[in-house]
Design a protein around this nucleic acid. Sequence first.
DNA 1: AGTAATGTTAACCATCTGGTTAAACTAAAT
DNA 2: ATTTAGTTTAACCAGATGGTTAACATTACT
Lengths: 210, 210
Amino acid sequence: MVNSLYICIMERDLSTEERIKEAAKQVFIIKGLAGARMQEIADAANINKAMLHYYFRSKDQLFKKIFDEVIGEFAPKILSILGEKRPLEVKVKDFVHQYLDMLSKNPFIPLFLISELRDQPEHVIEKVGIKRSGALDHLDQQLKTEAQAGNIRSIAPAHFMANLISLSIFPFLAKPILQSMFQMSDEDFSSFIEERKVLIPQLIMSSLKP
Amino acid sequence: MVNSLYICIMERDLSTEERIKEAAKQVFIIKGLAGARMQEIADAANINKAMLHYYFRSKDQLFKKIFDEVIGEFAPKILSILGEKRPLEVKVKDFVHQYLDMLSKNPFIPLFLISELRDQPEHVIEKVGIKRSGALDHLDQQLKTEAQAGNIRSIAPAHFMANLISLSIFPFLAKPILQSMFQMSDEDFSSFIEERKVLIPQLIMSSLKP
DNA sequence: AGTAATGTTAACCATCTGGTTAAACTAAAT
DNA sequence: ATTTAGTTTAACCAGATGGTTAACATTACT
């Protein structure tokens, strides 16, 4: 049976390989590697199941391709903004703003990445590890010099990053819990995220005041 | 084949039902519902696979039992501390301290809960929703009166909670990424968490300064 | 002791699932 | 038109998986 959730997006003008990748991305992101079924992906792509194996030898290889693609367009965006040579406060605001926007459009990505982190940590480490090198050097330097100049309190880059990312990503992971805890509708949650675009930079910057 | 990871914990003096639950908890927490195999749970509990179905009719029912138990001993701990009638700063410190301790001992719990949130949101909503009612009333009141008294900046309880929980939980979810990003060993990560016990309350409280 | 209820085991089953195969279709190249 | 390479399909397969059954063992009850 064709799953009506997916086919709507499966435009016919895409190449078969592209259709498979789009379908696989949707299914994997929502169900995870273990939970996804090849048949479901085939249905979503509106093709025969054998085609999956024709284009991507195995489920694992298909998943790896999707995973790499997703992480490949996700991780760099995190780091590029913070690596730029602009004032700290501007970068923080920009980061939070862009990041929350992206997450609003792709709310399942964080869980997807983190879930598979559980089973394939080496794989992710390898992927993210490469991207990191150098990208944060300027931030490290910036935090150090600003602290030495007495403009901000001294903070380890790891904590700075952990705070920023935690505050931005986690609400999306815990969305259902937050919604139930504070009786938010989906619209309420959107407003909640909008508020956080202002709130998180305030929080981060105020904590850096010397 | 018996999985050597699990059996060490399966003491013989536990009742069969308890052994199953302990084993299932371990396997489910690490592999998730879809990734866990009944045979693996049986091996970990050192019993016949049929016993699983004798004590808990199906995989889903077994999972539900485990899930409810885990969430049942996890969620209340979050809320009880913050619901107490003590000064805000004391509660925040206490919460972060106890929470990070618990997470250090059970680092897989957050991913477990959040992963299955994806497939069974209603179930969690129901579970958490009940616990919530009333538990946070005092905190709501406290945030409001303190703000009116001019002691703290005004903040919505949802944001306050989101900040606190995000900062505490997320680093455990992203542990492998953080470790790779900042080249932390496991010991480094433990120190990192220890530092956060001080850092998070500072961060939260400094952001509340009027 | 005898019997009923409960606990345990091994063998079995239906279905699902990832993956394969060989034949058929298509379209470009000769 | 024939060949050739790439693409698509339907049927099939072996192993895994959740779940069942019926016989056997143990404990509790009378």
